[in-house]
Amino acid sequence: KTVKFDGLQFDFDNPEKALKFALEVAKQKGAEVHIHGDEIKIE
């Protein structure tokens, strides 16, 4: 899975870790997590 935000991109082999990371970043930024297939966007 790939996590994208602020023009940055982070690749994870483990989908659970990717989602956990995305949710943590979103919480800190006050943003929402959007999942599109293998891509997780924080907006």
Rank of each mutant, 00 (worst) to 15 (best):
D11R: 08
L8M: 11
A18H: 03
I40K: 01
Q28R: 11
Q28H: 08
E39P: 01
L19T: 00
P15A: 13
K27E: 10
K29M: 14
K41M: 14
L23Y: 13
K27N: 08
Q9R: 10
A31V: 09
E39L: 13
K4W: 14
K17I: 12
F10A: 01
V33R: 00
F10V: 05
H34V: 12
D11Q: 11
A22Y: 06
A22I: 04
V3E: 04
G7C: 14
D13I: 07
E32Q: 13
K41T: 14
E16A: 06
P15H: 11
G37M: 08
I35C: 15
E24M: 02
K27M: 12
L8S: 03
E39S: 08
K20G: 04
N14S: 13
E32P: 05
K41L: 15
F5P: 03
A31L: 13
D6P: 04
E32C: 15
G30I: 05
H36P: 05
H34Q: 07
E43Q: 09
F21V: 14
K27G: 08
K4P: 04
A22R: 00
Q28V: 09
N14M: 05
A26I: 04
K1G: 05
E32T: 13
D6S: 02
K4S: 10
K1P: 10
D11E: 12
L19R: 03
I40E: 01
K29Q: 10
T2W: 05
F10G: 03
L19I: 06
D38N: 13
N14G: 04
E16W: 07
F10L: 05
A22P: 14
G37F: 10
K17A: 14
E32A: 12
F10M: 05
E16F: 04
L8R: 03
D6L: 08
G7Q: 04
A18Q: 01
P15N: 09
D13S: 06
E43H: 10
G7I: 05
G7H: 05
F12E: 01
E24R: 00
Q9P: 01
N14W: 02
L19N: 03
F21A: 14
E16C: 15
E24C: 15
K20L: 11
D38G: 11
D6K: 04
I42S: 03
F10H: 01
Q28W: 03
Q28N: 09
K4L: 12
I42R: 01
H34G: 05
I35P: 03
H34M: 10
K17H: 12
N14D: 14
E24H: 00
H36E: 11
A22T: 00
L8E: 06
K41V: 14
K27H: 10
T2Y: 07
E24G: 01
D6F: 04
E32V: 14
K27S: 09
F10D: 02
Q28Y: 04
K41D: 06
T2L: 07
V33L: 11
D13Q: 06
E43M: 11
T2V: 11
I42G: 02
F5E: 03
I42V: 08
F10P: 01
K41G: 06
Q9T: 13
Q28A: 12
V33S: 01
K17D: 15
V3S: 03
L19S: 01
L23W: 12
I40S: 03
L19K: 03
V33A: 03
P15I: 14
Q28P: 01
V25M: 12
F5N: 04
E32R: 13
D11L: 12
D13Y: 04
T2M: 06
D11S: 09
G30V: 05
D6A: 07
V3C: 03
N14H: 06
V25T: 05
E39I: 14
I42L: 07
G7E: 06
